[in-house]
Design a protein around this nucleic acid. Structure first.
Lengths: 206, 206
DNA sequence: TAGATTGTTAATCGATTAACAATC
DNA sequence: TAGATTGTTAATCGATTAACAATC
């Protein structure tokens, strides 16, 4: 179960699950690899390999049973118990992230937010309690948080990351436009909106 | 100049430029490939290859002249004239994006935002005029916008993308959790925050 | 000069794609 | 059965890494 799975495969599985849940809601029972491929942007062969990786099998005539496949992916992606997430930085982007995840994923909820600005702390934003950043390490260690989202300005991101890692965080989603230096046992996913937009603008011009 | 450059290379170049500009501001004049590598998370060999791609040359003893290299990258990434960007969806995320880019990049500015909700339109948010989505095609074609950001709910993203493409847009930054189907001459960069967070949570548990 | 770095090619690696026997 | 799809392996592709002569 704790296989070595590539970054990309895990990303695709997460996407498949969401698509499958949507389809299940609309009453569809089965689909073929090429259906899921068309929905997700992957290829049918990728879907088949990814499905294989989670240990689920389909039928050559009926395809995959949607509910079963979704359940297999869930078993694979989600841990035994639900995971708590911390958010650091409650500016425009941080608040958008809070709003976005508010009550959406019960297994993966942002349970604590932190900010340096005292006007933003000691209140509840989109259902999430905001604390001063001074209590970051204490709080993260206390709750046993292992996943964090960094949405602070570039200059503060590395300091925040260091403190997170010291408190036991093992995965960071980093929106700050800075490459974070972390130990090899910590997974970092960088989302650099400026770079993404510049890429789009570049290829739009070609 | 209009070379076939990979997605990843363009992304790294965009990041290098930002790092170089920061260094230039702090008064540094030269750096070596491994310095830029350490800052960006790339390898020194990647930096050398990327620099080669933009047609700039360094010196084995001094390294790269920061200002010159930044200028070469800028010539390469930016077009002749500045590019206008449209934003569709002025919800929490859309407003965060507006705030983020507001006045930051003169060459790549969000000049028009669109939303379906009439409470959000016909006003200026973070310096950007918001229009009803009905005038999207008209406005995009009129201004000659070729780059757009989609920040609408998943269900509306494909419709919006179709209309954008019909109006002449050739690059889309898509925050909606939907795989967009577009013609092959349109570049799409998907930023799926939910998938990214699930990936981080998954690897944090390993 | 000696030494480190550059520009650039060759070797490696990993992921994607093609292919096909097994299956229902 | 005939036919399409599955599970899975082999071939392909592209990007990363290693290597090294040329350079200052």
């Amino acid at each position: 179960m704790t296989n070595k799975l590539s970054d990309k495969t895990v990303g695709r599985l997460s996407l498949y699950r969401r698509l499958l849940n949507n389809l299940a809601r609309s009453g569809v029972k089965y689909l073929f690899s090429h259906d899921l491929a068309a929905e997700s942007g992957a290829t049918a062969a990728q879907v088949r390999r990814d499905v294989m990786a989670v240990g689920y099998s389909g039928s050559p005539t009926k395809g995959y049973e949607i509910a079963e496949l979704a359940a297999s992916i869930a078993r694979f992606l989600d841990g035994e118990c639900s995971q708590s997430v911390a958010l650091i930085g409650v500016g425009n982007l941080g608040r958008a992230i809070l709003a976005y995840f508010s009550g959406r994923r019960p297994n993966l909820a942002i349970v604590a937010a932190f900010d340096r600005d005292e006007h933003r702390v000691n209140r509840v934003i989109h259902g999430c309690r905001c604390y001063p950043v001074d209590v970051l390490q204490e709080k993260v260690a206390e709750v046993g948080i292992r996943t964090a989202i960094i949405a602070v300005p570039a200059g503060e991101a590395q300091t925040v990351a260091d403190r997170l890692v010291r408190s036991g965080v093992r995965g960071i989603l980093n929106f700050a436009p800075t490459h974070l230096r972390v130990p090899p046992n910590v997974f970092v996913q960088e989302i650099d909106i400026t770079t993404s937009l510049e890429k789009v603008a570049f290829f739009a011009r070609q």
